[in-house]
Amino acid sequence: MQATHTPAPSPVRLSRNLAVASLLGLIVLGLVWELWLAPLRPGGSWLALKVLPLCLPLAGLLKNRMYTYRWLSLLLWLYFTEGVVRATSEPAPGAWLAALEVLLSLALFAACVMHIRLRLKAAPTQPDTATP
């Protein structure tokens, strides 16, 4: 009887999965936070619309587009900044959710940077055709 061996996922695939999971986590956190758990106003807040820009890169991450990883790594600093400000200025439930937003933003940034570096490292190098 032969045991089937499944190969370990590649580091590129792991970084992609971490990026997608972190992005989905930020989207869900933003909605749950602003609509149910600790909205700025009772009954929900229009601030839940802040997750709309996060929905745009989801398709690019799922299609494995390098450009999406690059611009997302810049966009997510807005969410990191919001998390830091709200973690230090809001009362308990909001502060905990803001700290979670900071952690998810850092995880997403790390995943994007890892993914970009691993893909560039794995890309075949092209010889320089412009010789002087």
Results as ranks from 00 to 15, higher is better:
Q2A: 13
H5A: 08
P7Q: 09
A8F: 11
P11M: 06
P11D: 13
V12E: 15
V12K: 06
L14E: 10
L14V: 14
R16Y: 02
R16L: 13
A21W: 14
A21T: 14
L23P: 06
L24A: 12
G25E: 06
G25I: 03
I27S: 08
I27N: 09
I27D: 08
L31I: 06
W33D: 15
L35Y: 04
W36C: 05
L37M: 11
L37Y: 09
L37H: 07
G43V: 10
W46C: 00
L47T: 11
L47G: 10
A48W: 09
A48P: 00
A48F: 12
L49V: 14
L54N: 10
C55Q: 11
L56D: 00
P57W: 07
P57F: 07
L58T: 13
A59H: 12
A59E: 14
A59R: 14
G60C: 05
G60Q: 07
G60A: 07
L61F: 15
L61M: 12
K63R: 15
K63N: 09
R65D: 13
R65H: 14
M66L: 14
Y67T: 13
Y67D: 14
Y69Q: 01
R70C: 09
R70W: 08
L72Y: 04
L74E: 05
L76N: 14
F80I: 02
T81K: 00
E82N: 09
E82T: 12
G83L: 02
V84G: 02
V84E: 06
V84M: 12
V85M: 08
R86G: 01
S89D: 08
E90K: 03
A92P: 05
A92I: 06
P93N: 05
G94E: 05
G94T: 03
A95M: 00
L97W: 03
A98P: 12
L100F: 03
E101F: 01
V102R: 01
L106R: 00
L106H: 00
A107H: 03
A107L: 14
L108P: 04
F109T: 05
F109G: 05
F109M: 05
A110M: 09
C112H: 04
C112I: 05
V113E: 06
M114D: 15
H115S: 12
I116G: 01
I116E: 04
R117T: 02
R119V: 10
R119D: 06
K121N: 04
A122H: 02
A123M: 07
A123V: 00
P127A: 09
D128F: 10
D128Y: 13
T129Q: 11
T129A: 13
T129I: 08
A130S: 12
T131I: 13
P132K: 03
P132W: 11
